[in-house]
């Protein structure tokens, strides 16, 4: 049986992890490679690296990091942040990334999804969607939720699926950072209207939240950052908890 995935997300700036990293037993908790190994060993099903640096040298640093991570870990990982062309994708995949995640660039140039899917296959194209619920409507936002777009979440999800996205990473801006649980109603609706896997993001605070997003939110995977980085939730304990709730997980 296909299992539900648990995905820690690491924010990267200039080749270092930036926030919320607090592993006492690591020599260098700012080293993304050390953290990636730690997560792979403790049962993470995949990893996501989100590059948030803004300097000129960022590309070279990121590529070097991707190579080191790919050499060190034996589970799949996705790289996102600042990918705007097929050439950007090419260099990341050639250096060992398994999937890439695009967000703003897909909204600005939807054809990018088609181009990447045609060249490398849908399986490596994750479209990240940040949306905020305003007066009942889920509106897609850019730049970390600062800039609203014309797109409704569900219309945009259908659009990216048709264009060849292999997976959707949906972050609810309303839930992100609250630790009050994922946006399960919107997630369940997403799973109804598209037929590609959905990763839930934004709002993880307790183990129950993960169980709820898999059962009520029908999510295929759940992504979180701080609850894992601060060891508020340990992945082996989380998986045991989910298993006890009859949710299929890889133990």
């Amino acid at each position: 049986m296909l299992t539900k995935r648990i995905i820690p997300c690491l924010d990267i700036k200039n080749g270092r992890t930036v926030k919320g990293v607090n592993f006492l037993d690591l020599k260098d908790a700012g080293d993304p490679v050390e953290l990636a190994k730690k997560y792979a060993q403790t049962g993470a099903d995949e990893l996501v690296f989100l590059d948030i640096s803004a300097t000129e040298e960022r590309r070279a640093t990121l590529i070097d990091l991707v190579r080191k991570v790919a050499a060190a870990i034996n589970i799949p990982f996705t790289v996102g942040g600042g990918i705007a062309s097929v050439a950007d994708v090419d260099v990341l995949l050639r250096n060992g990334a398994d999937k890439i995640s695009i967000n703003s660039s897909a909204v600005k140039n939807p054809n990018l999804i088609n181009e990447i899917a045609a060249k490398y296959g849908s399986q490596c194209v994750v479209v990240a969607i940040d949306a905020k619920q305003i007066d009942g409507d889920w509106i897609v936002h850019l730049v970390g939720g600062k800039v609203p777009t014309e797109w409704n979440l569900f219309d945009w999800a259908k659009e990216v699926e048709q264009r060849g996205a292999g997976e959707i990473l949906f972050t609810s801006m309303n839930n992100d950072g609250t630790k009050n649980g994922f946006a399960n109603e919107a997630l369940a609706k997403l799973s109804e209207i598209v037929n590609i896997p959905i990763i839930a993001s934004g709002g993880a605070g307790t183990m129950e939240h993960f169980a709820e997003t898999f059962s009520n939110g029908k999510a295929d995977a759940a992504l979180a950052a701080s609850v894992f980085h601060y060891q508020e939730i340990e992945i082996p304990a989380l998986k045991q908890f989910l298993k006890n709730q009859n949710i299929a997980v890889r133990m």
Partner: peptide
């Protein structure tokens, strides 16, 4: 078929 999500993505036995 469309009875399941396509692609299958993740860990299976």
């Amino acid at each position: 078929s469309n009875e399941v999500k396509v692609p299958q993505m993740g860990w299976n036995t």
